[in-house]
């Protein structure tokens, strides 16, 4: 960016909207250090009390653990299945390919409430009790299309000839997959995994219908929003989570950008 653009209307607008986007986050972090049980202005003074009390909030911490485990497991599955689907779509021509692509993209454009209640009916029909597992299934369904598209767009940046070249040099189909295709996909798979994890970690609209007795963090948060006295704790935790997720996402973005860079070179 050149110096004269710093004061251009476009840049000023960008700065204003960015402030608008970050304002709520800043407000939460400020309140997490505010010495008052109610989240109202004016501020009362600095405290670390809420962070200290977090350690004793068992339900809250259990919900965090549940969300982390759920996020990790469902994201591994979603990334694996999404990668398989992406390789299938990008590298193989099979009957019904377009139909498969259309159906696999559908979960992206179905309102979550519909997906949630439909899965609720399914599990009730089967007599499967609701639990973190049923939530996990929903998260996999939600994340597979995104994982698929992220990996597929990476693969599209590379010549199909690469796999043919490996076969030509004597490598088997599975060997080619392991030594060429997957290493090429790896950055996109990591990015898909991180994207799945953050989605799962934050997902509430569907989880709400499918959750059993053990809460995920968003489900717990939702239940706590009605009890103002517990809000400062929630806010303190929220600040931690936001800072951590900002760090994670920054890492993911950085990976993705370096990925883009590489794939451009690779396709040259």
């Amino acid at each position: 960016m050149q110096r004269r653009d710093v004061l251009s209307p476009g840049f000023l607008y960008f700065v204003m909207l960015t402030l608008f986007l970050y304002a709520p986050i800043v407000v939460l972090v400020v309140f997490s250090f505010n010495d008052s049980r109610t989240l109202v202005f004016p501020l009362r003074g600095f405290t670390l009390r809420w962070y200290g009390e977090l350690a004793g909030a068992r339900e809250l911490l259990a919900a965090v653990v549940n969300s982390v485990v759920l996020g990790l497991m469902s994201s591994v599955v979603a990334t694996g299945l999404g990668t398989a689907a992406a390789i299938g779509i990008a590298r193989h021509n099979f009957p019904g390919r377009r139909f498969f692509l259309a159906v696999s993209a559908m979960p992206m454009v179905i309102p979550y409430v519909v997906l949630g209640v439909a899965l609720l009916i399914l599990f009730s029909w089967w007599g499967v009790p609701l639990s973190l597992w049923t939530v996990g299934v929903a998260h996999v369904v939600i994340n597979v299309p995104y994982a698929m598209l992220i990996v597929a767009s990476r693969l599209a940046g590379f010549d199909k000839n690469l796999e043919e070249a490996a076969m030509d040099l004597g490598e088997t189909y599975w060997g080619t997959l392991r030594r060429i295709t997957l290493p090429i996909c790896a950055p996109a798979m990591l990015s898909a995994f991180l994207s799945s994890f953050t989605t799962s970690f934050d997902e509430f609209a569907v989880s709400f219908f499918l959750i059993g007795t053990e809460a995920t963090l968003p489900v717990y948060l939702y239940s706590q929003l009605r009890f103002p006295s517990r809000l400062p704790l929630v806010v303190a935790l929220a600040s931690i989570i936001m800072v951590v997720s900002i760090l994670l996402v920054t890492l993911a973005e950085w990976l993705r950008n370096s990925t883009l860079h590489l794939s451009r070179q690779g396709s040259a």
Binding site: P24, I25, L39, F201, D202, L221, L231, I246
Partner: peptide, 21 residues
């Protein structure tokens, strides 16, 4: 990236923040 990053933080918590605002 700067623009996208807040989008990946907790949706419920950002709504909570709006309630505060």
């Amino acid at each position: 990236s700067l623009l996208i990053i807040p989008a990946w933080t907790s949706y419920l918590l950002r709504i909570l923040a709006w309630k505060v605002i």
